[in-house]
Nucleic acid binder design. Sequence first.
DNA 1: AGATTAAGCGGAACCGGTTCCGGTTGCAAG
DNA 2: CTTGCAACCGGAACCGGTTCCGCTTAATCT
Lengths: 195, 195
Amino acid sequence: MTGKGTDGTGRHGRPLRADARRNEDRLLSAAAEAFAREGTGASVKDIARAAGVGVGTLYRRFPSKELLIEATYRHEVQVLCAAAPELTASLPPAQALRAWMERFIEFMAAKHGMADVLRVVLTDEGERLTTRAHLTEAVRHLLAAGASQNVTRSQVEAQDVLMALGGISVMADTERQPGLVPALIDLLLHGILTC
Amino acid sequence: MTGKGTDGTGRHGRPLRADARRNEDRLLSAAAEAFAREGTGASVKDIARAAGVGVGTLYRRFPSKELLIEATYRHEVQVLCAAAPELTASLPPAQALRAWMERFIEFMAAKHGMADVLRVVLTDEGERLTTRAHLTEAVRHLLAAGASQNVTRSQVEAQDVLMALGGISVMADTERQPGLVPALIDLLLHGILTC
DNA sequence: AGATTAAGCGGAACCGGTTCCGGTTGCAAG
DNA sequence: CTTGCAACCGGAACCGGTTCCGCTTAATCT
C-alpha cells in the first residue's frame, strides 16, 4: 500500500479532488457488484463502464486489477482478522487456530478465483499498516496463545503460517478435489503443534 | 494428457503426418530455448515465429501455453521423480524426504514463473500415466520408506504432500523473502513426521 | 499418375489487462 | 471573477493468450 486506495487521499497524502473521490466510490461499488456476480473474473473494462468512467481513470486509482480486488475486499479481511482474538478467547489454542485457518481458506475460496487477492493481500511492502500486517498479527495472536500453553512450537513464525495458508488457498483453488483443504490444514496444524 | 504431446501420435493415436511431427520438434526446441532465455514469460507468438510456424499450428499441438510448458519440461520432471528411489536408498527416510522436497521446490523455482507449470503438472485427469502420477508415485515412495520405520505418520497421503509442495512453490514464487522456503519445508516436514 | 480427403497450416481477429497521452477541470491564488 | 496548473479524465493503442476458418498438402486409394 503506498497511500492509495479507499482512504480518500492521493499519492502524496493530499486530499483527493471531489470528482476523483466520487469516481473512486463508483468504481468500488461497481467492482463489488461485478465481483459478487461474476467472481474476480469480471473484466475491468466492464467495471469501468458500469461505474461510468474510462479504464484510465480506474487504473489511476487502482494501478492493477489485483489492487482493485484488494480494495474491494479489504473490509472483509479486517473482519477475518478481528475474529482471531475472539477465537482465542473462546476456544483452546489448537482449536482456535484450526477454526481461524478454516475461515481464512473459506474466505479466500468464497468467490472463485480469489487466489488473485492473495497475491496482493499477502504481498506488500508499504510503510503503513497493511492488510498483510493485520493478517500476520492475527496469526501471531493465535500462535502466542498456543505457545503460552505449550501446545504450539515456539519456533513457528506467524508469517510462515500465513504463507502456508496462502499456498493452501491457491492449491484448493487450482485443484477441485474435495477433502484437499481439510487434509492440508491437518498437515499444517501438525507442523505447528507440539507433539 | 489426452494422447497429445511428444509421443508422436495425434488425437486418436494415429501417427502424426511428417510435417506435423517436424513442426512439433521445432516448436519444442524453440520453446526450450525461449523458456531458458526468458523464463516462462516468453511469448507464444515469439516461440511460434522462432519455430517458423503460425500460432495456430502451435495451438493445435499444444492447446495452451501451460501444456507447451509441461511438454518442454516433462523430461526434467521424470528425472526429478527418478531421484526419489535413489534418495531413499542412500539416506534415512526423513532426510531423503527433505532432500527430495528441496529438489522439487528448486526445480519449480528454477525458471521464473515456473508456477505455471505446476498447474499443469499437478492438474490432470488423463487416462494414461501422467506427469502428475509420476510425482505422486515419487512422494509415495518416500513416505512408504518413512512409514516402514515409523518416522512418518501413516495417515499422510502422498497427494496431499504434493499439493502442499505445490503451494510452497507458488508462494515462494510470489513472495521473494529469503528463508521462506526452508521455513515452509520445515513446517511441512514437521507435519509429516511422527513426533 | 490422378483423385480424394482428413490432417495440418497460418494468421487475422478477438478478448482481457495495462499503458499512454492529448484534452479537461477542480481549485486556489491574485 | 479570472487565470494557471496540477490533477484528472477517457479511450485509443498495445501486448499476450486463444480461437476460428479458409487454404494447403501428405498420405492413401484406384
